[in-house]
Nucleic acid binder design. Sequence first.
DNA 1: ACCTCCCTGGCC
DNA 2: GGCCAGGGAGGT
Length: 278
Amino acid sequence: MPELPEVETTRRGLEPHVVGKVIAAAEVRRSRMVRRQHRDRDFAERIVGRRVLGLRRHGKAILGDLDGDLTWVTHLGMSGRISVATAGSPEPPHANVVLSIKGTAEEVRFVDPRTFGYMAVFTPDELAEWPPSKWGPDALAELPSAAKLREVFARRSAPIKAVLLDQGVVAGLGNIYADEVLFRAKVAPTTPANVLSTEQVAAVRKAVSPVLKAGLRHGGTSLNDLAYLLPDGRAGDYLSRLKAYGRDGEPCERCGTAIRRTVVRQRSSFWCPKCQPS
DNA sequence: ACCTCCCTGGCC
DNA sequence: GGCCAGGGAGGT
């Protein structure tokens, strides 16, 4: 449940269940899930008894402001999702971290089969050291101007797809939405960023917000494996609206040409060879 | 500025 | 069995 719309729908789904509430207990069943924590194994110790003052998001990270000036970080990685359910109800496999909420019958389960995600509670100093402090502006809330993007792209000869996936440039785009942005902008994923025309940079920039907002409106992209679900267990609906990602061999909706799959930086990329000339 | 690897599971 | 999967840290 990895990209920005999935993370934001998760944040919104989680918010009413935790904001203003106190974490009553924390069970870490796989210590790997808290491996980003500075001192080993004190995740539970740090979060228990804390009140959640607010829940924010930056890129693909969910940030919970706790009392005592601590920040509760959740990164869902590739296969992570949050489930809010009645304590004691049947659990899905890989509920690796479970938080109970004071005064309610609900618990928050961090489900993550591949364990690429993590949770941590950071002090302000630790938060400043945490890698995403090197993340760029949020793709939805603070998308850089076209001029700024032109400047950044001009310095990069890497494929535009790789640059869009670089969280240091813009935080929040992942493999699915990067392909969707490039399809909408009519730019091939393999195009070196520094050869994009001014118009193409503008088109890429202009595509980001509509693509992400459409993903949000539909609750994100639950793929067929249903690894990503909203916190209440509903599936996100955006899969059927994807125009490029996963549509290898299917006709492009604009021109009918078969969508192609190409590997860019070890990630699958889907694009229309006619609408997105390289 | 690149790979490689971290994991588990589903599908062919 | 082999390949694939919403990400990114770490080492080169």
